[in-house]
Amino acid sequence: SHLLLTEPAPLAANQDDSTDDGSLRTLLTLCDLLNRELLVLIGWAKQIPGFSELSLVEQMSLLQSGWMEALLVGVAWRSQGRAGEELVFAGNLRLDEAQCRAAGLAGVYQEVRHLAARYRAMKMSPEEAVMLKAMALTNSDAELPDSPDSLQRLQDGLQEALQDYECSRGEPHRAGRLLMSLPLLRQSAARAAEAFRRLHRQHRVPIHKLLLEMLNAK
């Protein structure tokens, strides 16, 4: 319930109007949205119980490896609607397969739709969505130089909260089902990050400083 309370209000996209090229405009609008979402996510991470007790190095490391996963939980969550064929990045930024392909994000479309279908099939609750976001963010495989005790405590606390929640609903097995969706999330995030790096390097799509820093962090 603490995580639900601290869940930020959804952001709206600011339509880019710097170019006549439709798919570039979409991409620039998306990059601007992601950059702002990233900023909000960094603020939100500090609200995860135990996060602020980690060292600065640990906090940076978790965010650098988990930010795209955390953001994609939100995109997949919003994209579950009906049998929708769109990726809902924001209420006013919904991209179908053709638009994603034109923007160079065909692979991202496939994977995140897959993820959305999986969340939809298990009828993921808002509580589970925020838990998954927090867990994705704290489940880094990066090697951490500091003592791992506080991170372990943070992860244990989240797992316990998830177990408690599922047990209170009388469906304890859902905790495991939720965790089993994490590999697909990580794979989708890796593909998405790679797609944006490629668009930046090969196609010279301008990317905001914070977003670029995070894309190049690993």
Binding site: L39, I42, G43, K46, L56, V57, Q59, M60, L63, Q64, K209, L210, E213, M214, N216, A217
Partner: peptide, 15 residues
């Protein structure tokens, strides 16, 4: 950390 200036700053300054 020099390479990750913005993130470093955001975390340190309490946003």
């Amino acid at each position: 950390q020099e390479k990750h200036k913005i993130l470093h700053k955001l975390l340190q300054n309490g946003n």
